[in-house]
Amino acid sequence: MASPGPHSRFSARVGGTPASISEAAGQVMAIAEAHGYDKAARFAVRLAVEEALTNALRHGHKGLDPGTPVALDVEMLPDAMRIVVEDQGPGFDPAGVPDPTLDENLNRPCGRGLMLIRAYMTEVRHNQRGNRIEMTYQRPAP
């Protein structure tokens, strides 16, 4: 991985271990902090990055070699961060994910990652295949 710093782009290939997810998220946090993102913003971005990488490696890469990496790209814009996570799996239909906040789903231990990403990011897009998520966090006005 490239060393973190106040540069405008960061790319990494994240392997299939929890440690690699934490390491990549830590790199993104260092960049966000270097660009002046406050604690609340870093909390939101970290949550989204961790959830997107976990989803990609756990669900997107199900059935693939455990070492298959996920691509992480972060671009620092003047007032926003754009984070892209792309896996090498067949993709999924985001519209098919059950709403975990419905009463009948509250007791289910899984299925909250995507809704947390949507809650904390300003904009979330998926490609048609469903193996790529693009998340934008707009920095709140001072």
Binding site: R46, L47, E50, E51, T54, R108, P109, C110, R112, G113
Partner: peptide, 16 residues
Amino acid sequence: DHLSSAALGTLITINN
């Protein structure tokens, strides 16, 4: 000071 959806899932399992 931070958790994840997987941690929430574990808490739900514990609650059950």
